[in-house]
Design a protein around this nucleic acid. Structure first.
Lengths: 88, 88
DNA sequence: AAAAGTGTTATAGCATGCTAGAACAATTGA
DNA sequence: TCAATTGTTCTAGCATGCTATAACACTTTT
């Protein structure tokens, strides 16, 4: 039995990731994780206010606040890791 | 702006995947994708009935049926790809 | 000082994925 | 043959992540 993390590590192209995610998660969940990731990137790379991001991405203000909390306050630093890596 | 798929591709260890997922998805969503992936693996590598899998993993029968549909009938073949890859 | 904008939190309502359980047609096995 | 098991689908109820909106305390701007 292989962990879901090992499953992700086995994928090597964007298309493979898409196909795995389309089997693994629902269209609604897919839309939501794309939104969260976009919010995280906007928080990281722009000076827009939470309300501007909320309106621009058509997501609720509470969702922006929640992503910001994971980006800044929660201890996992997964967003931070990927954002740093993308910069290079 | 980088796609969520590029974000996943940038991760290189299980721990990095865990940390990114803990920022990106909720604990409930994490539990659910782990369950779905486990169901897919049991469907693929055992002869257990859907009801046995349902009871053993403590998930609803409808969830097993749904995962089975993505494994066998839906066109994405993301589960299949990873399962094949894990076999080697 | 007053007005505007900020991040944050709470409320109510909605959509969706889950569960248990029942029911169904089709297949399997004694 | 006929009872049991199978995969599948439906129902009802529950939990949770979403939305818009309002309110709050703070800070910034005019």
């Amino acid at each position: 039995m292989f962990s879901i993390e090992k499953a992700f590590l086995s994928l090597t192209t964007e298309k493979e990731i898409v196909n795995f995610l389309k089997d693994l998660i629902t269209p609604v969940e897919y839309r939501e994780i794309r939104a969260r990731w976009k919010i995280a990137q906007m928080l990281n790379s722009t000076n827009k206010s939470y309300r501007e991001i909320s309106e621009e991405l058509k997501v609720g203000l509470a969702t922006v606040t929640r992503v910001a909390r994971f980006l800044k306050d929660e201890p996992f630093k997964g967003y931070q890791l990927v954002l740093k890596r993308m910069k290079k």
